[in-house]
Structures are given as C-alpha cells and as structure tokens.
C-alpha cells in the first residue's frame, strides 16, 4: 500500500516536472503571463481605478467578483463550523 502511494506521488511529480520543461524561465519579463493580460492592470490602474496599488485594484475592481466568492467561502466555512460543532444547549445525547 505504501509503495503504491509512493508510486502515485512519484508519477504525479514526474508529470508536473515534465510540464516545466517548456515553461518560460523564472522571472522572464517576456513570458506570456507577463505580456497578455497583466500589462493593462499595471499601466491603466491609476487611470481606470485611481488606485496606485495594483493588487488592490485587481482584487477589488477588475476581478472583484472573485473576491465576493472569497468572502462567500469564508462565510461557508464559518457556517460549516457552527453547523458541525454547535451543541444543544440543554445537555447532550
């Protein structure tokens, strides 16, 4: 069983490392991730959202809906903990 788990882990890791072979190098300013969508966030942030902090402007403006989802996740987790751990007030079964 232990061997089987190890094999699964090694295979998964090997596939992931195989994928890194074609990746742009670390910190490469010419990588697609830095060129396609993100330049607008950097250059237009002041003009479009009046916020110098780009992380804030993306978080709370461009992709604010993800942030709403994030708060819902927290709310779900809170409600889940109450649902799971709350005890009846008078005694227990």
């Amino acid at each position: 069983m232990r061997i089987l788990n190890l094999i699964v882990v090694v295979i998964t890791g090997a596939i992931l490392i195989y994928g890194t072979m074609d990746m742009p190098g670390w910190g490469n300013p010419g990588s697609p991730a830095s060129l396609h969508v993100s330049p607008r966030y950097i250059t237009k942030t002041l003009e479009e959202t009046a916020t110098p902090n780009m992380v804030t402007s993306v978080l709370a403006d461009y992709r604010a809906y993800d942030t709403l989802g994030e708060t819902v996740v927290i709310f779900t987790a809170g409600m889940a903990c109450i649902l799971l751990l709350r005890k009846r007030r008078n005694g227990h079964d």
């Binding site: 409600m79 889940a80 649902l83 799971l84």
Partner: peptide, 21 residues
Amino acid sequence: LFNLFVFLEIASLAGYALIAV
C-alpha cells in the same frame, strides 16, 4: 477558469459540512 475554481470550492466546502452531519 479561476472563478470556476472559487465556486467549485464553495460547493465543495458546503458539501463537506452537509455530509458530516
């Protein structure tokens, strides 16, 4: 795709809690 992940996690977290009771 990322928004899908967020909602997938909302559904999963709610599912974990509902099953556990």
